[in-house]
Amino acid sequence: MTGTQYSAGNLRCIEYYEGAPLSYVTETAARQLEDLTSAHTVVPTTTRTPEQFRRIDLPGGPWRYAITSNGGALLADGEPDEQWRRHVETAVREGGASLDEVTAELRRRISESWVSKFRIADGLFCYLVVDVAAQPAGFVEDWHEWCGIRGWNVSQQGRKIYTMPDSVCKSHAVAEVHRRLADEGVIDADAPVFAAGDGALDAEMLRAADAAIRPRHGELELLEWQHANLSVTEHSGIAAGEEILSWFARSARAEGGS
């Protein structure tokens, strides 16, 4: 976080894990999100699994649609959509190596000396929690090379290293939700899509949006990632959240988006 400091009284905890507070937004950002969802269609989109997403008391809910598991799961009124899940599983099977094949190879390449957790997420992809200082040099590059020719990709976000099928992608799920909302008469068929994200797993979604924004922190900032439709916040950390929500509100008003 740069430029602005926040006291505990100015923060709202929106996630507890095992009884302990974990995630916060500013009270200003919470109000901004509530105002945004009251005027426009907002679809939370995350790499978290459905179970992890449900831990969050995100201001503005409940949500008609939410996208979890990096696009591998679509929640409709809080419940997993089985039709979308079948579509994703078929795409994964046809797209390359199986999860079992990938995890077997990954386990062969890692050790407890630098990996503290190995997790399978929603039966679709996996991630490691690592000691970055002890992580072997070139691991991500070598692992990405092995995965790339087998229909998978690799992304490191801080202490987490994700291994993801190419067909499990947020942009595909966003397009499906857009189609459904248009069919339901909630938005026009040509309604613009605005998106925000900070990790490499968000890049395709940001690229596919009509306009997008990323904060001045995270993996995409480290990669100095840019695109013609992309804005970048002035602030980093929690202050960037308010800036991003202001951008969403301005963008929606300017385009007359719903």
Rank of each mutant, 00 (worst) to 15 (best):
A137Y: 14
S111T: 00
V102L: 05
T47N: 10
E221P: 00
L99A: 11
I161R: 04
K160M: 08
E224L: 08
A191P: 04
K117F: 15
R48N: 05
A203G: 04
R109I: 10
E15Y: 07
Q156M: 13
D183F: 09
R150D: 10
V88G: 02
I238E: 10
A212R: 03
D188L: 13
E219Q: 08
W114H: 00
C126L: 12
V130M: 01
D142V: 07
S98R: 11
Q156C: 12
K117I: 15
P215R: 02
A212M: 00
I187Q: 15
E145F: 07
E224P: 03
Y24V: 11
A182H: 01
D188V: 11
D122N: 03
L230K: 05
Y24F: 14
G71V: 03
I149W: 15
A175F: 04
V25N: 00
A29W: 00
L201W: 07
G218A: 10
P21Y: 10
C13S: 04
N153Y: 14
R253E: 14
Q226W: 13
A66Y: 00
R119Y: 13
G138F: 11
A66F: 01
P21T: 10
E234W: 15
E101A: 08
A133C: 08
A20T: 13
A182W: 04
D142A: 09
V232R: 12
E184F: 11
Y17N: 12
S258K: 13
R31C: 13
R179T: 03
T163Y: 02
T37K: 09
E82K: 05
A254T: 12
G151R: 00
E184M: 08
A20E: 13
T233M: 08
I14M: 01
R85M: 12
E51K: 12
W152Q: 01
K160Q: 15
L99W: 07
V92I: 00
P59N: 10
Q156L: 13
I149G: 15
L206A: 00
Q156P: 04
A137N: 15
A208P: 04
D122Y: 05
I161L: 06
Q135D: 03
R253L: 15
A39V: 05
F139Y: 02
R64Y: 06
L33S: 03
L181I: 10
E234G: 15
Y16R: 11
F118L: 09
Y65I: 06
E27P: 12
R85D: 14
Q32V: 03
Y65F: 08
A66V: 01
V130E: 01
